[in-house]
Computed example of a mutant assay.
Amino acid sequence: MAHAISTRRSWLAGLFGLALAFGSFPATGPADAADAPVVVFAAASLKNALDEATAAWGKETGKTVKISYAGSNALAKQLESGAPADLFFSADLAWMDYAQKAGSIRPDTRVDLLRNAIVLIAPKDSTAALDLKPGVDLAKELGDGRLAMGNVDAVPAGKYGKAALTNLGAWEAVKDKVAQAENVRAALLLVARGEAPLGIVYASDAVSDASVKVVATFPADSHPPIVYPIARTKDSANEDAARLLVWLRSPAAKPFFEKQGFSVVGSEKKS
């Protein structure tokens, strides 16, 4: 019994720490009251766009939305452990697949909503200049500095970044210079503070912070397509979550995402 209590306390402590870092969880389980907030677990890279979009929806409907931001990997595992949420908005397909296999979401509500790109960033006063093509010498540009990225084994932006660097033939030379962060916004912060001379983040992250600049954009064919799926969770009892999901897919939400550098699936310009 004591061991079980200790384990539960450890789990709750970890969950509370995540809430403090990226948002707030409700005091009870999944929303089941008519006026309860819609609880969203969302990838850290969505913060600016989703904050503005849900604020607009709230103003329109009078409803409240509570969002907890973190790496998609951390959120998927929290859902698997029973953390309460109504919607899961992932930064890649793999972690939504994970949540679906774990029985954490309702597959019939799942939809691919957004696309993004990954870029190489530097502090705004940097003179760094690189052409991201095969054979690029990124290690030389870094010198003794570090390359800020999301965790390359778990965080979607980190996985995309490693794939791109591998395809460009640059990974082996820089892998020991990588500063791996728990999510893409943490990687962005390392560059914004000047603690890393270069970083790999989403184009939407670069838009969100005026203290960094884009050095170059990774070729789209150097990494898997960057797709953001969203779904309602299996245990959600809040019907406002279904309404919010419909609204996020509507033309009304599109400007909030495009303003932050995302493109909406199905509405991309044809070349």
Results as ranks from 00 to 15, higher is better:
1 M>K: 04
4 A>D: 12
5 I>K: 13
6 S>N: 14
7 T>H: 04
8 R>C: 12
10 S>P: 05
12 L>I: 12
15 L>F: 14
16 F>P: 00
17 G>D: 11
17 G>Y: 09
22 F>H: 13
23 G>W: 10
25 F>H: 06
26 P>N: 09
29 G>Q: 13
33 A>H: 11
33 A>K: 13
33 A>N: 14
35 D>M: 02
35 D>R: 10
42 A>F: 03
44 A>I: 06
44 A>F: 02
46 L>S: 09
46 L>I: 10
48 N>E: 15
49 A>K: 04
49 A>P: 01
50 L>T: 11
53 A>N: 05
59 K>F: 07
61 T>P: 06
63 K>I: 03
63 K>W: 11
66 K>H: 02
69 Y>C: 05
69 Y>T: 00
73 N>Y: 15
74 A>I: 10
74 A>D: 12
75 L>W: 00
75 L>D: 00
76 A>I: 01
79 L>F: 01
80 E>D: 10
81 S>N: 06
84 P>A: 14
89 F>E: 01
89 F>Y: 07
90 S>K: 00
93 L>M: 15
94 A>M: 13
96 M>H: 09
98 Y>G: 03
98 Y>R: 08
101 K>N: 14
107 P>G: 09
108 D>F: 00
110 R>D: 10
111 V>Q: 12
111 V>I: 08
112 D>I: 10
112 D>H: 10
113 L>E: 01
116 N>T: 15
116 N>Y: 03
117 A>F: 11
117 A>K: 07
120 L>V: 03
121 I>K: 07
127 T>R: 14
127 T>Y: 02
127 T>H: 15
128 A>W: 05
128 A>S: 15
131 D>P: 04
132 L>P: 09
134 P>V: 01
136 V>M: 04
137 D>L: 06
141 E>V: 10
141 E>W: 06
141 E>M: 11
141 E>A: 12
149 M>R: 06
150 G>S: 05
151 N>Y: 09
151 N>P: 08
152 V>L: 06
153 D>T: 08
153 D>N: 13
154 A>E: 11
154 A>I: 02
156 P>Y: 07
159 K>H: 03
160 Y>I: 04
164 A>W: 01
167 N>K: 11
170 A>W: 09
172 E>D: 15
172 E>M: 03
173 A>G: 01
173 A>Y: 05
174 V>E: 00
177 K>R: 08
177 K>N: 03
179 A>T: 05
181 A>R: 14
189 L>I: 02
193 R>A: 09
196 A>I: 01
197 P>G: 04
197 P>C: 03
197 P>V: 02
204 S>N: 06
204 S>C: 11
205 D>M: 15
205 D>L: 13
205 D>A: 14
206 A>V: 04
209 D>I: 11
210 A>P: 10
210 A>W: 04
214 V>G: 04
220 A>S: 15
221 D>R: 04
222 S>L: 08
229 P>C: 06
233 T>V: 00
235 D>S: 13
236 S>R: 05
240 D>Y: 01
242 A>Y: 12
243 R>I: 08
245 L>A: 07
250 S>W: 02
250 S>K: 10
255 P>N: 08
260 Q>G: 02
262 F>Q: 11
265 V>W: 02
267 S>P: 08
267 S>N: 14
267 S>M: 05
269 K>I: 14
